[in-house]
Design a protein around this nucleic acid. Structure first.
Length: 226
DNA sequence: ATCCTGGACG
DNA sequence: CGTCCAGGAT
């Protein structure tokens, strides 16, 4: 029974594409930039994390300088993003590690590795979990891994794609294999967009939802709202 | 003035 | 499961 998921993925992807457009894959950025920005975005709103990223990039234009910086001054630089004490530590350690190991603070070598190996390499870094590792590879290298953030997890749950008791990481691993490579990027982006605009955590706007017909979420507000 | 949101780790 | 944080929404 829970194996009707596969066909519905293509259907949902199409519906979202018609509603929000088919986002083109934009030119890849340095993987280290993407990784740092993604760490800053953990448990942090886009506007806050992006502001912090710009400040950090401005202060340490080549990431190498982070290795010799005081965590305190890194923390002050990214303070507007929140969680600066953990994140400054983690970013400094990560850059120092790569720099020490590879001689430069870059991650482009990941592009030459098999998908799984690159993913596991990132996962092994402290402060890099499944979502961050996947985002780095998808946005930095166009490698079709499927990051599951809180929006995707929520919307996917309502769509019936998430099994009972299945956590984010398990879902990310399993679902990845069900999504055709070329759908990974647009589906990821459009599900997030949909989660933000319509399928809110608290009060989803099911009446304005382009997926309403395809969604069997049980707690859907009733049609007659008057 | 409180409430809410957002990943990874100890 | 508690902790880490700021800024925007209510």
């Amino acid at each position: 029974m829970p194996e009707k998921i596969r066909p519905s993925i293509g259907k949902i992807e199409g519906m979202l594409g018609r509603r929000y457009g088919h986002p083109p894959w934009t030119a890849s950025r340095p993987l280290m930039d993407v990784l740092v920005e993604t760490i800053l975005s953990q448990n942090t709103s886009d506007s806050n994390s992006h502001r912090a990223f710009l400040a950090l990039k401005k202060k340490y234009p080549g990431w190498e300088a982070l290795a010799g910086a005081q965590t305190g001054s890194i923390a002050r630089t990214i303070r507007s993003g929140g969680l600066e004490n953990i994140k400054s530590r983690r970013i400094k350690d990560l850059v120092s590690f790569i720099l020490g190991k590879r001689g430069k603070a870059g991650l482009e070598f990941l592009k030459k590795m098999p998908r799984e190996a690159a993913y596991r390499y990132l996962l092994a870094i402290k402060g890099v979990g499944p979502k961050t590792a996947a985002c780095t590879l998808l946005f930095g290298a166009g490698i079709p891994v499927y990051p599951v953030d809180t929006h995707i997890y929520r919307v996917s749950s309502r769509l019936g794609w998430v099994k009972r008791k299945e956590d984010r990481e398990s879902f990310q691993e399993r679902f990845r294999k069900l999504v055709p490579d070329k759908m990974v990027y647009p589906l990821h982006l459009n599900l997030i967009e949909h989660g933000r605009r319509i399928c809110h955590p608290r009060k989803p706007e099911c009446l304005d939802c382009c997926l309403n017909k395809a969604c069997n979420w049980k707690e859907k507000p009733h049609e007659s709202v008057h």
